[in-house]
Design a protein around this nucleic acid. Structure first.
Length: 433
RNA sequence: UCCGCAGUAGCUCAAUGGUAGAGCAUUCGGCUGUUAACCGAAGGGUUGUAGGUUCGAGUCCUACCUGCGGAGCCA
């Protein structure tokens, strides 16, 4: 069915005459020789048009094309060291399939407001293309990671009857005439019963938080991958999270080198992630470390962005902070049997200021303890009856974590803001396009 | 929601309270190996909105609108 060549195929077609379709990305004029850069999503190709070598009509078409015009170009593939990418096209024919008028995004700088309002067009820019390729690679690596380890993917619902954690950040929608539904904030609660059915499960999909967050580290709609594993306890969970991040990073380094280069991301900064063990620090030790750096934190305080960055300073891998005070963590987290004030949980903090990429815990598996936690947190008991059933019928220790895809991709790409790591970001006060 | 910053040409930005400017983009011209090419020329403006102070406001004051950055919360 597909017969056409892509630009990325060309290095193995040197010496052949080929026809390609794509868009005019950029050009450099040189009097009687023009250099057109064609892009087709697979790569970029310098097409050399020489006035002496083509018919007048072809010269007119080539030099009359504007940025982002749709072109069909025929020419001879040549290896040439002067050309970015190693091969270039000696143009024989150019057809302008559509002449583009008033393309708004120029090669010079633009402000974020402008670019975000042109997001549907901004996607064509080389750096945005590179980020989307890294994102897709990570998504694919996530599925491979779990499938090679015997996990079953279980899709959790997006429309839910009640909150998983806190009702303040829920998106509400009308479900029937007299019933509301809420967009999912996490698939975890639905994954736990599935872990009893299938043992090792994971979900991967969009999640929604109606928080009024307006920072580079927040989106209102983001993608989260969440494994949940029967009979896995906290130490195994730490191993799983570390192995997971190592494998995804290795995959990006292995297969998306060109994209990292285009993003001017220093790949050497990611290499220790693959080779070195991630430090594991308890919350109590973290508080001490922060106090030595004269942060005014004490046991019971949550750690803010500045504290997280200070903790990761001096490390070239992520660090895992474990055993936070139970009082500041979710109701379902298992208390530490030797230190009941803390929960068996972890936050993985990425280096270079990228902050929390993973949060997870061992879950309470005792029915009565979970019941009392639901009551302590003033949660509507009837909404959690089915969740309690997991502990009522053949309970088992289990653990899981959630990783925010965009945060991971932002870190891989060295992009400072999450909004560039999802094709169409949903942010506070911005839902166009 | 709170705190801070900013709205001037299509875009990115200049302009002591005193004639509205540049680069890029666009159009035209020049250049046969360019790498955000370069050189020359032209067109392009109700300075976010509404008031106010002043002989005079892009500039100072007030309110509003829009956007950005950050906090809290989180992945």
């Amino acid at each position: 069915m597909e017969n056409s060549l892509s630009i990325s195929d060309l290095p193995s077609h040197a010496g052949e005459t080929v026809t390609l379709k794509g868009w005019l990305y950029h050009w450099r004029k040189g009097g009687k020789i023009w250099f057109l850069v064609l892009r087709d999503g697979s790569g970029y190709l310098q097409c050399v048009v020489s006035k002496a070598d083509v018919p007048e009509a072809v010269w007119e078409a080539a030099t009359g094309a504007t940025q982002e015009s749709t072109l069909e170009v025929t020419g001879l593939v040549k290896a040439d060291a002067r050309s970015p990418g190693g091969v270039e096209l000696g143009v024989l024919d150019v057809k302008v399939l559509d002449l583009c008028h008033d393309w708004p995004i120029t090669p010079k700088e633009h402000g974020v407001d402008f670019l975000m309002s042109q997001r549907h067009l901004w996607l064509r820019s080389s750096k945005q293309v590179a980020v989307l390729k890294v994102r897709s690679e990570v998504e694919s690596a996530i599925h491979d990671f779990f499938h090679t380890r015997g996990y079953t993917r279980v899709d959790s619902p997006i429309l839910t009857p009640a909150a998983c954690e806190g009702t303040s950040s829920l998106f509400e929608t009308q479900y029937t005439d007299d019933e509301k539904a809420y967009l999912s904030q996490s698939g975890q609660l639905y994954l736990e019963p599935a872990a009893a059915a299938l043992g090792k499960v994971y979900c991967f999909g969009p999640t929604f938080r109606a928080e009024k967050s307006k920072t580079r580290r927040h989106l209102r709609e983001f993608w989260m991958v969440e494994p949940e594993v029967a009979f896995l306890e906290i130490d195994g969970l730490l191993d799983l999270a570390e192995e997971f991040v190592k494998e995804l990073t290795a995959r990006v380094l292995d297969r998306r080198k060109e994209d990292l280069k285009r993003l001017e991301r220093d790949a050497a900064k990611l290499e220790p992630v693959v080779s070195k063990k991630f430090p594991r620090i308890s919350y109590r030790d973290a508080v001490e470390m922060l106090q030595k750096k004269s942060f005014p934190v004490k046991f019971g305080d949550d750690l803010g962005g500045d504290e997280e960055t200070a903790l990761t300073e001096g490390f070239d891998t992520p660090i895992m902070v474990t055993r936070y005070p139970a009082s500041i963590k979710a109701f379902y987290m298992q208390p530490d049997p030797v230190d009941p004030d803390v929960a068996l949980c972890l936050d993985m903090l990425a280096p270079e200021g990228y902050g929390e990429i993973i949060g997870g815990s061992q879950r309470i598996h005792d029915h009565d303890l979970l019941l009392s936690r639901i009551r302590q947190h003033d949660l509507p008991l009837e909404a959690f009856q089915w969740y309690l059933d997991v502990r009522k019928y053949g309970t088992f220790p289990h653990s899981g974590f959630g990783m925010g895809l965009e945060r991971f991709v932002a870190w891989m790409c060295g992009v400072p803001h999450l909004r560039e790591c999802i094709p169409y970001p949903r942010m506070l006060y911005r839902i166009y396009p």
